[in-house]
């Protein structure tokens, strides 16, 4: 078994009378893709919002196991979760910096390394060697990811001018440029056609094999979820109703009930709209 990277224990998030996430516990392992699925409104994105510091959980503990020691995410400020705990995230809707170039989007993700190297800006202004080296490294890393997502030729175009599918991949590449240990992807396949989703599968499994990081995935596209997940957690009304390998989950009666409303044999979970 691979080592546990993220441990979610008794996570509960209440908004007034509404319980969005109810006593949820699960673990995500390093080098594995853990999918969180469930019907709309099941609380998936709320889990991500708790992980990345948007919400303070009402109850619960979110432990990230770093080599240096465990960190409690629920006690950290938003930007520190990215900077220190190294959790990266994408959103359901695209949130690139549309008026920066494709390359700059990737370089800005390496801000903290560059800021330190620049001695807080003065070094950069006078072109000190230390900053130039750091900038060179940042550039190389960015180019590596540009190659992987096949956007080298568009490096100097504004990110907002890219086609939708390219913007999606650029977002993931940008998240990877922050050098994360945990990558949280919120519906990365939303709006992609079947061919693009297949490419996304390859891209994500590639990241898993090469970078050995943990990936948390929220997705409705079952071809993606079933194709690449190592472990699936199913939520409904904020509660965990099932978890396990793709094979177990897809045969679980509770999952089928949540997705289709009534028991039915051999049904593959589909999106409930």
């Amino acid at each position: 078994m691979k080592p546990v990277l993220l441990e979610v224990e008794h996570l509960t998030m209440r908004f007034g009378g509404l319980i969005a996430v109810d006593d949820l516990s699960f673990a995500a392992r390093q080098g594995e893709i853990t999918a969180i699925i469930g019907p709309n409104g099941a609380g998936k994105t709320t889990v991500f919002n708790c992980l990345t510091g948007f919400y303070k959980p009402t109850v619960g503990r979110l432990t990230l196991h770093h080599p240096a020691g465990p960190l409690l995410l629920e006690q950290m400020e938003g930007f520190r979760i990215a900077a220190r705990a190294r959790v990266a995230r994408t959103f359901q809707n695209i949130r690139l910096f549309p008026r920066m170039t494709v390359l700059e989007n990737l370089i800005v993700a390496q801000h903290n390394v560059l800021m330190r190297a620049s001695g807080f800006t003065l070094g950069a202004l006078f072109g000190l060697p230390r900053y130039r080296h750091a900038e060179q490294d940042a550039l190389e890393r960015s180019c590596l990811w540009l190659e992987r997502i096949g956007l080298v030729t568009r490096a100097n175009d504004e990110a907002g001018s890219l086609p939708y599918g390219d913007q999606r991949r650029l977002e993931i590449a940008r998240a990877m440029c922050t050098d994360p240990v945990l990558l949280c992807l919120d519906e990365p396949a939303a709006g992609l056609n079947p061919r693009e989703s297949a490419e996304l599968n390859q891209f994500l499994t590639g990241i898993r094999e090469r970078e050995k990081i943990g990936i948390l995935l929220i997705e409705h596209d079952m071809s993606v979820v079933m194709g690449i997940s190592d472990h699936i957690v199913v939520l409904d009304y904020g509660k965990r109703i099932a978890s396990g390998s793709p094979g177990t989950v897809r045969r679980d009666p509770a999952v089928i009930r949540a997705y289709l409303g009534e028991p039915e044999s051999d049904a593959v979970p589909a999106e409930r709209t």
Binding site: R89, F91, H111, A124
Partner: peptide, 20 residues
Amino acid sequence: ALGRAQRACEQDLTMAALLG
């Protein structure tokens, strides 16, 4: 790096924070 961060914040404060 500071200038880049400023431009990033100008376009999307939340996303900038999520990049650390």
